[in-house]
Design a binder for these strands. Structure first.
Lengths: 241, 241
DNA sequence: ATTAATTTTTAGTCTTGTCTAAAAATATGT
DNA sequence: ACATATTTTTAGACAAGACTAAAAATTAAT
């Protein structure tokens, strides 16, 4: 029996070619995150910082991934995912987000404690397992942080008009729809200040000198948020006055 | 905050010392299985066969594990788990069996397809995860193959008087309580012949020349089972005539 | 009790993924 | 445009975990 991999309308055979190591999978995932929706080129140093690694290690791995045609890599010019590479990255992200959803919905974890465990679970290799989990969870569209969960075929349902809180203008009324999941301390901080998914806030003032922002909650409470914080919150407009 | 490891009545601190690699964990688990309840010494070649590895690789790893005081190893004389090593092995087995139970009970997997996935999941490192899973599954005592699931403290509830089907005498009436989980093809074979957990069979005849056996099912059907098969089925006596 | 067969260990090599230090390419500032 | 700063790559090293081939210890057999 032959196995196939269906990516972006292309059918690749010999799926065994895509049995990657944890490390390789982490590289693909991080390149995907860094290159964003517009598929920016990702620089070696950027990747090194995100993967807690050194530039020289990144260069080595990029050459290896380029050899496998998972990234397009040009010396001194950074890298990009190929269609194959992106297809795999999306499947890893699917696994990560489904496991996070499982941990929160079924095992009663808090949304701020699931990231590290999902980092491990995302490397478990079984299509049947992940599709069964998807079914068990009733095909969720978004994970506990508000990020979209890619489906079996890698299709991602983006929420329309999601932008960073830091990009909003004064007086906007917005709903929090996602939080960058990387830092457990940030998540705890937000939880403590009641800045949870689905809540509405209004931007009161923006301070140029340190790029911070003052916002108001639904209950009237006001709060100052640093540059760091507002860059890690994704919002959707409710209305603009 | 300090973390502790409670093993067989001893309290070990500095749990970080026990962050083992997948490979190390697999060695401990396999030594545990091979040395059985009576803690037999396990030979290098035996381990090599079970781990699909070479004797020289085993020697290397045993020296490393002895260094960490997880096995007691004597040159040319094989190895044994220390209390620490056994405590860790039992926790890995706990994880393996809980995940198998999850796959069968919640994700509707067949009992014969869960072993390979559980081999991966057993290495996920999170005490909170596994304890939550245990709770979610309502603290099961036995896994889908009939093997006992160690509890949080490593205690194992053995079924009394479990022996191999091959060790029974003619005319015994026994209940199938476990099946050695290693071979998917064996499991499929048993399923096909309705030899599932909990079923009762009677031993009709034993053949010395090839160590095979003829048995009868509850519905009267008779069946010949090879040496290989009857050595991999665990049973409990119901009565002996 | 020696010799033969088997098991186990040692010694040396390989791959993966990482690192440091130094060299090369690119980007920046005046 | 040229010197300086930054980024990226190369070269060489290392640890983990496995392997092969050869040596040493143990076990079995006559």
């Amino acid at each position: 029996m032959k196995a196939y991999l269906f990516i972006k309308g292309f059918l690749f055979d010999n799926i065994m070619e895509y049995q990657l190591t944890h490390s390789e999978e982490n590289y693909l995932k991080e390149i995907f995150h860094l290159s964003g929706v517009d598929a920016f080129r990702v620089s070696t140093n950027n990747l090194a910082a995100r993967l807690n690694s050194k530039a020289s290690s990144i260069t080595d791995m990029l050459q290896k991934l380029a050899e496998k045609e998972l990234v397009s890599y040009v010396k001194y010019k950074g890298c990009n995912l190929t269609d194959k590479g992106e297809g795999i990255a999306v499947q890893i992200i699917r696994k990560h987000r489904l496991w996070e959803t499982f941990l929160v919905m079924k095992l009663n974890f808090g949304w701020e404690e699931v990231h590290d465990i999902a980092e491990q679970l995302e490397h478990i290799d079984s299509t049947k397992l992940i599709d069964s989990l998807d079914h068990f969870l009733d095909y969720p569209k978004f994970d506990p942080h508000g990020d979209p969960i890619p489906d079996k075929d890698g299709k991602i349902t983006y929420r329309k008009a999601k932008i960073k809180l830091s990009e909003t203008v004064v007086n906007s009324l917005v709903e929090i729809v996602s939080v960058n999941e990387d830092s457990a301390s940030l998540l705890t901080y937000l939880e403590k200040n009641n800045l949870v998914l689905g809540i509405c806030i209004r931007i009161i003032e923006k301070y140029e000198f340190d790029k911070s922002m003052r916002i108001a909650l639904e209950n009237g409470n006001e709060l100052n948020l640093s540059k760091k914080v507002i860059e890690n919150i994704g919002v959707k407009f409710i209305s603009k006055t």
